[in-house]
Design a protein around this nucleic acid. Structure first.
Length: 529
RNA sequence: GCGGGUGUAGCUCAGUGGUAGAGCGUCACGUUGCCAACGUGAAUGUCGUGGGUUCAAAUCCCAUCACCCGCUCCA
C-alpha cells in the first residue's frame, strides 16, 4: 500500500486552509457548494502548474513520432458562445439527463434508462387478446431479452412480488418493447413498480438535471437569449479551427491549446476541489490525418503521462488506464483509444481519480460543426501538398488544472512526526513550489536583518522569495515547510565576517554553508530559471 | 435529490436553560545564537443562518445553509 493511502484528507484540507492554499468560495456567507477559491500560496501553485503546462505543451513539446518538432498554437476562447455550438456538440441533449428517485428504495435512476413493461390482470390476459394494462413493472435491463432472462432466474419470486404489489396475480406483457419511463404520461407514472420496490407508485416525476449552467445574453430573458457557460473548453478550439488554419501558417499535423474555466452543474460536488462546478481545464486538440491516429494517440498518451511524472507525481499513485470499449463516449467508439491519467487521491484510494483524459475524438466535432453551420464539406481541410480534402481527426489530451493542483498538494503532503520542528512538510518539486526560497536573519539584530534584506532584494526579481525576521528560527522554518519552500538561507553571526550563509534543505532539514555570493547560482542550479 | 453525521475564536475542543471559555496559533514589545523556545501584553465570537418556545436559548423546537460518510450522478 502506498504512502498516500495513509494520508488524511482532513489534515490536507486543514493545512490548505491554514496556510492559504485553498478556501471555500464566499466562505463568510456560509460558502457555496462546489466552488473554491485559491489563497496566496494556492494561486501561485496553480499558476506554476499552468505555466509548466504552457511551457511543456506550447513552447517546447517533445518531438513527435516522426522526430519532427510539434506545432502547437494557443488560443483563448470565450466562456459564453453561440448556443448552437452546444447543440452541434451534443451537449444540449447529452447534458440534460432527467432523473427519477424512488421514494421507497431511495435509489436514483436516469429516467431514460428505466424501461417499463405493461402488467395485466392474469385472468384478463388469458381471456382477451388486448387486455387492459393495470400497471407497469420498471427494469434497468436494456433489452427485453435481458429483462426476460433476469426474472426467469427466479420467476416465482418475481411474480410473487408483482402479485403483492398489484394486489392480484398478474402477467407481464411480453413479448413487446419496454417503454422508457420518460415516455409514460400522467397517470401511467403513478402505477409503476420501481426496480427493487415492493409498492407501486414510488417513483417521482422525472426531474431535469441541467449539467450546463444557463444564462441570458442581453436585457431580455427569453428562450431566444438563452446561452450556456461552456462545460468544456474544447469547443472553442474546434469552432476556431478554420481561422487558425487560415492565419497561423500551420498544417496538419498541428495542435491548438488553451487554458480556461469550464462549468458543470454537478449533481454532487464532492471531495474538496476534485469535483467542482467551476473548474479550469488545460486542453490540447491535436489535428492529424486519420490514418496516423494510432501513433499520435500513443505519442500523447506517453507524453502526458511522463509530464505528470515530471511535476512530482512519479510514484505508484500515478497510473495510466485504457478505457474499456463499453465506457467510451459517443465520439470515440471507433477510434485509436481513450485513456485516463489517474492519481490515487486519499479519498479515492485504493482506487484512482482522473487528472487527464486522452481521447481519439475522430472527426466528430469538426464534422458536427461543419454540418450544423450549413457549410458542410466546404469546410474540409485541404492538404497543401497533395490537395487532398478531408476532415482531420483529433487526439485530445484534456487535463484538469484544479485536479492537478489537488494531486500535487496530496502528493507533496508529508506528515513528519519524527521531525523536531514541523509537523508537516509540503514536498513540491521546486518548479511548482509557490515560494522558491526564504531568507532569514537568525536573530533580528547585529546587522543580520540588513544583510538579509539586501539578499532578498537581489533575488526577488528572479524568484518568488520571502523574508521573515519575526519569532524563533524554528517557527520560521516550520512555516516554510508547510508552504513547501525548498530552501531557506539564514544569515547568522558569521555572515558579516566570512560572507557565508547556511542553506537549509526542506526535505532533510539538513544545513550546509555556502558563500553569500553563491546563493543565486545555487538557486539557478536547484530551481532553474 | 435521498439517508446518516457534524457545525462554539484562525485551529482543536469544553460548555444540558441563567455573565462566552481553555489550549494552541496570530499580533506587539522584550529576549534570542539553528528547528513550532521563553516572558509580558493584546486582538479575535452574528455560538453556521433564520424563525419559534421561554422572564431568559450556544443549550429546547422548526426551517434553512455548509461540510463529512453512504446512495445517486459524473456525455
Amino acid at each position: 500500500m502506498s504512502a498516500s493511502t495513509t494520508k488524511s484528507m482532513d489534515e490536507i484540507v486543514a493545512l490548505c486552509r491554514r496556510r492559504g492554499f485553498i478556501w471555500q468560495s464566499s466562505e463568510v456567507y456560509g460558502g457555496i457548494n462546489g466552488f473554491w477559491d485559491y489563497g496566496p500560496l494556492g494561486a501561485q501553485l496553480k499558476k506554476n502548474l499552468k505555466d509548466a503546462w504552457w511551457q511543456d505543451v506550447i513552447k517546447t513539446p517533445p518531438a513527435g513520432p516522426d522526430g519532427a518538432d510539434l506545432d502547437i498554437v494557443p488560443v483563448d476562447c470565450t466562456i459564453i458562445m453561440n448556443p448552437k455550438v452546444w447543440e452541434a456538440s451534443g451537449h444540449v441533449g447529452g447534458f440534460n439527463d432527467p432523473m427519477v428517485d424512488c421514494a421507497e428504495t431511495k435509489k436514483r435512476y436516469r429516467a431514460d434508462h428505466i424501461s417499463c413493461y405493461g402488467v395485466v390482470d392474469e385472468k384478463d390476459g388469458r381471456e382477451n387478446a388486448e387486455p387492459t394494462t393495470i400497471g407497469y413493472v420498471a427494469t434497468l435491463a436494456a433489452t427485453e431479452e435481458e429483462f426476460f432472462t433476469s426474472y426467469r432466474e427466479n420467476e416465482k419470486k418475481f411474480f410473487k412480488r408483482l402479485a403483492k404489489a398489484f394486489g392480484k396475480p398478474v402477467m407481464v406483457q411480453l413479448p413487446g418493447e419496454g417503454v422508457p419511463y420518460t415516455n409514460l404520461q400522467g397517470f401511467d407514472r403513478k402505477i409503476v413498480l420501481g426496480p427493487d420496490a415492493t409498492e407501486v407508485g414510488t417513483l417521482t416525476e422525472p426531474r431535469e438535471f441541467n449539467l450546463m449552467f444557463e444564462t441570458y445574453v442581453g436585457a431580455i430573458r427569453d428562450e431566444e437569449s438563452k446561452a450556456y457557460l461552456r462545460p468544456e473548453t474544447a469547443q472553442g478550439i474546434f469552432t476556431q479551427f478554420w481561422n487558425v488554419v487560415d492565419t497561423a501558417r500551420v498544417k496538419i499535423p498541428f495542435g491548438m491549446a488553451q487554458i480556461g474555466k469550464a462549468f458543470r452543474n454537478e449533481v454532487t460536488p464532492r471531495n474538496f476541489t476534485f469535483r467542482s462546478r467551476e473548474f479550469e481545464q488545460m486542453e490540447i486538440e491535436f489535428f492529424i490525418r486519420p490514418e496516423t491516429a494510432g501513433e499520435w494517440y500513443q505519442y500523447w498518451r506517453d507524453t502526458r503521462y511522463a509530464w505528470w511524472q515530471s511535476i512530482g507525481l512519479a510514484g505508484d499513485n500515478l497510473t495510466l488506464r485504457e478505457h474499456d470499449k463499453d465506457e467510451l463516449s459517443h465520439y470515440a467508439k471507433e477510434g485509436a483509444g481513450v485513456c485516463d491519467v489517474e492519481y490515487r487521491f486519499p479519498f479515492t484510494a485504493p482506487g484512482y481519480g482522473e487528472l487527464e483524459g486522452i481521447a481519439h475524438r475522430s472527426d466528430f466535432d469538426l464534422k458536427a460543426h461543419a454540418t450544423a453551420c450549413g457549410k458542410g464539406d466546404k469546410l474540409m481541410y485541404r492538404d497543401p501538398v497533395t490537395n487532398e480534402k478531408f476532415f482531420p481527426h483529433v487526439i485530445e489530451p484534456s487535463a484538469g488544472a484544479d485536479r492537478g493542483t489537488l494531486a500535487v498538494l496530496c502528493e507533496a503532503f508529508t506528515p513528519t512526526p519524527d521531525r523536531a520542528g514541523s509537523k508537516y512538510v509540503m514536498k513540491f518539486v521546486p518548479r511548482l513550489a509557490p515560494i522558491k526560497a526564504a531568507i532569514f536573519p537568525l536573530v533580528n539584530k547585529d546587522g543580520m536583518p540588513e544583510i538579509a534584506d539586501k539578499l532578498y532584494r537581489q533575488l526577488r526579481n528572479k524568484y518568488t522569495i520571502q523574508t521573515d525576521a519575526k519569532q524563533s528560527i524554528g517557527k520560521r522554518y516550520a512555516r516554510m515547510d508547510e508552504a513547501g519552500t525548498p530552501y531557506c538561507f539564514t544569515i547568522d553571526g558569521d555572515t558579516a565576517t566570512d560572507q557565508t550563509v547556511t542553506v537549509r534543505d526542506r526535505d532533510t532539514a539538513e544545513q550546509t554553508r555556502i558563500s553569500l555570493d553563491k546563493v543565486e547560482s545555487f538557486l539557478a542550479e536547484k530551481i532553474g530559471d
